[in-house]
Computed example of a mutant assay.
Amino acid sequence: MFKLATFWKWLYSDWEASIDKPIPGYTILLPVPGDLPVFLKIALEICCQQKSDNLVETIVIPDQSLPGFKELLQEWAKDYSISPIRLVKPKLLEELIFSVKKNPHHNYASQVIRGINATQSTHALLHDADLFITNNTFLNIHYQKCNNSHLACLGVSPVWDNWYNEQGIYHLNATWELIFNIQWARSFKPWEHRGHDNEINGKAHTFDVTLFPQCKTDPKFIDRHQEEWGFVHFNYVICTYRWFQKSKVSFEDESFRILLIRLLINAFDTSAWKYDVPEVDELVKGINDASNCVTYMQQKTRENYGEFRSKLQTLIDSQILNDEKAEILSEGVRNFDRVFC
């Protein structure tokens, strides 16, 4: 019988040719959804506001190759002044797996591995597609702390899975804005960075992306900032969109992530790209119409609005958006405010 875990171990058994003399500094890795280029646009605009000290390169890693994506990157990269920028496409087999599975967790793990393979600097940073950096020295401070403290990796948030705390493992970091030493990352097999089933201290568990290597690393080489700072993070937006794509019935947008995507498209992307995301007027219908393609009917959804709206307002009030973008976001959410606030 075919075992998927065995396949992943075969596909990601070894790293590509090592770099003899890595360049001191860090690379920004941008794993983005190929069919939602608005997140590429956002990442480029947000990262371009960062101080460029110690930044070697920026690598764009789409989860799929679609016609027009490369051209948009070329156009938008004209205003990207902080580093050289490079596109790393999926391999043919990865494209095939995506077309069949459309699993966001598989996609992201493959993007991380491709990014590590392509990095030529001593360090790399995983920038999350739905995270907005609000402090323009954030990335350089992040890199300097990791490098100067000789860390394997440095995070900004703890992992979401409480199982690790129950085992007395407290040092693990979530992947968003994780900066890490490339030599450390390559000291593990590529498949070990994927989400997979394994054991630690004799106990079986499903390890999310990068968590098994972190578990196997001495805690003194892993650190995290004492508090979350310098960013607004909406969390799991791309995953939610993939589940929305696979849904055969009305999709309850319980954390308002589909709404967020549409608002961001309207605010950031003036290209002719055709998005499969309902317009705001269509989403508004889902507040009262249970047959709408996207709905906002459940009590849990109502309870989640406060957190979503607070994050959105923090983004609107930040200095990283111009007045036009801020107004588009504020106006787009107004009908939802009338119902849920």
Rank of each mutant, 00 (worst) to 15 (best):
T175C: 10
I23S: 01
D63N: 10
K41T: 12
V284E: 15
C293S: 11
I238H: 02
L30W: 06
F98D: 07
A17G: 09
L30R: 01
P219K: 13
I46S: 00
N147T: 15
N235K: 13
H106E: 15
C239D: 14
A174S: 14
A17I: 12
F2K: 07
A109E: 12
D128Q: 06
A185H: 01
E228H: 04
D223N: 11
R302G: 08
L55M: 13
Y296E: 06
Y170V: 11
E192H: 13
K21R: 13
S13N: 11
A326E: 04
W176A: 03
V284D: 01
W176H: 08
K248D: 11
T206Y: 14
I182M: 09
D253T: 03
I222L: 14
I261A: 01
Q50V: 01
A174W: 02
V294D: 03
E95V: 10
R338H: 12
Q183R: 15
T137I: 05
T206W: 12
E177A: 10
F244Y: 14
K246F: 08
R309P: 02
D53K: 08
P33V: 02
K311F: 00
N292K: 05
E279N: 11
E331L: 15
L66S: 06
G34P: 01
H142W: 06
E282I: 15
F251V: 03
A267H: 01
I23W: 05
I169V: 15
I222G: 00
M1C: 10
L259P: 00
S81H: 11
S149M: 14
G155A: 07
P90I: 07
H150Q: 15
P84F: 08
N292P: 04
S291Q: 11
P33H: 04
A174P: 04
I261S: 00
E199K: 15
I28S: 07
Q183C: 10
I222T: 01
D20T: 12
V56A: 04
A77C: 05
V232L: 00
D218E: 13
D130P: 02
D63M: 06
D197Q: 15
N266M: 08
A118F: 05
I97D: 03
Q74Y: 11
L264E: 01
H150V: 12
T206Q: 13
L4C: 05
F2M: 09
E75L: 09
S271F: 00
H105S: 15
M1E: 11
I287Q: 05
D14P: 03
I113T: 08
K89S: 12
Q167R: 11
I222V: 09
C146R: 05
C239E: 14
A118P: 06
I265S: 01
E282A: 13
S99V: 09
E57C: 10
G286E: 01
F340M: 10
T217Q: 07
P67N: 06
I85T: 07
P219N: 11
Y236F: 11
W8G: 01
S247E: 14
N292G: 09
S310W: 00
K91T: 14
G332M: 02
K246D: 10
T175N: 10
Q111F: 02
F69T: 03
W160I: 09
A129D: 04
L178M: 13
Q167L: 13
K248E: 14
A174K: 04
E303H: 12
T58L: 06
I169G: 05
V294Y: 03
C47E: 06
A185R: 01
S255C: 12
K189V: 03
Y275I: 07
V333Q: 03
Y275C: 06
K145C: 10
N322R: 08
F212V: 04
I316C: 02
L36P: 00
